[in-house]
Design a protein around this nucleic acid. Structure first.
Lengths: 225, 225
DNA sequence: TACACAATGTGATTTATATCACAAAATATT
DNA sequence: AATATTTTGTGATATAAATCACATTGTGTA
């Protein structure tokens, strides 16, 4: 047994609903692996029979668009990485790449299905989580397509500060080129807007470090473009 | 008992996995309602404790964006309409409006939860469905933002022909203004592109009727812009 | 049938942002 | 440390598509 999942400090709350037997199954049938920044965790187009769970670290979910790779979102631990891609198809429909060093659990899909089958509350929590994701997708869709780039850029910075790093000062975890594929714009526009925000005193840039000085302004830009 | 759900011809396959008891619960605790084209089935911001299932007809899922209503997708029966919006929050996070006359089942949320709790296979089918939706959102996100409007327009027409009406000849179910909010463009661009497609012999327009004459061209436009 | 209102077609103009081009910094590699 | 490679900053230019403006057609209704 690799680890006893009962004692794992990297839970999402759904795990807490497992039965004793469920915990035993999970403990006996998962693999904890370390990845380095830049490593591929899940590769679009590859066959996979594991549900992937991110214990620690930061990852990007991305997939091939018609012209370039599209980053769908950045996600931080603890979270599932490969639920839809594994549970639905066996062929991964998207890629997941490590944005920081990280630890990941691989859980055999059959075991995971068993857990779902034998643990109603667990199953329900997963449903809640998936519903939540779908709602988020809807909102993102409406926001991204209607806003100007400045607005989407403001969103991205606020998301990083509020939901990823929980701090108004952070190191940009991805390059401007990647940021462009997340915000749906060009690399050049990202650069220009960052300098502009800096000049306007909304943020302070110091190499890769970004500090949000005026969150109100940024929020306003997010709302009004 | 309104209907015996065992005999309902408008199932999705998940329903087939219910136990006898599950069928009895569902049969006793749902309401079948008729709606007319244009009626609101689910209203963003309203409180709701029902899971909504579309038996017959066509609906649009939409929500408020920063500048205008965003249509996220058109859906046709049979399908759930209000899973994420009800199961997650009690406040609806999006609206659903009838695009054709339709019949809808309202299922009490507590009953639905019971069904999930007591029917593992049913629960698993729902999870599969939600995973599938998430994957679709990812792909849509990559496609919509990277393609030119002609490409997105081609997609919309192909979607209507292949997945909604199952025919290359159909009546546009929504106005050009609504189409614009689905394809992420302006009403005028929709009009221009439709005429252009018609002039190029790719489609034939006859009032609200559209016939796809050259699906290959349309597919090519969808891929290459 | 007539009237009002909504939906559509189409030209002219404006605009946000992509693209191109290249210099400057930063980072990695030998 | 020196060189190569990637990343970033910024001006000039091009362009897809929005917006504006208005005519036309379609649809519902009094």
């Amino acid at each position: 047994m690799q680890n006893d999942c009962r004692n794992c400090p990297f839970h999402t709350k759904d795990i807490g609903t497992l039965s004793e037997n469920g915990f035993d199954q999970l403990s006996a049938n998962h693999l904890v692996l370390k990845f380095k920044k830049g490593d591929t965790i899940i590769k679009q187009g590859m066959y996979s029979t594991n549900v992937v769970f991110l214990r620690t670290g930061l990852a990007k979910i991305h997939l091939a668009g018609p012209y370039h790779e599209q980053i769908v979102r950045l996600v931080k631990a603890p979270t599932y990485l490969g639920l839809p891609t594994t549970v639905g198809d066996k062929i991964n429909q998207y890629s997941v790449t490590a944005v920081s060093d990280m630890e990941v659990c691989f859980i055999d899909l059959n075991i995971f299905r068993n857990l779902l089958r034998e643990n109603e509350q667990f199953s329900y929590e997963i449903i809640l989580d998936l519903c939540h994701n779908e709602l988020e997708s809807f909102h993102r869709c409406a926001q991204r397509t209607q806003k100007l780039i400045r607005g989407n850029m403001a969103d991205a910075l606020l998301e990083l500060a509020n939901n990823i790093f929980m701090s108004d000062k952070f190191l940009l975890p991805i390059s401007q080129a990647e940021l462009a594929n997340l915000v749906d714009t060009s690399r050049e526009s990202i650069s220009r807007i960052l300098t502009e925000f800096d000049k306007d005193g909304i943020i302070k840039i110091n190499g890769k470090e970004i500090e949000i000085l005026n969150k109100k302004s940024l929020t306003l830009i997010s709302l009004k473009g």
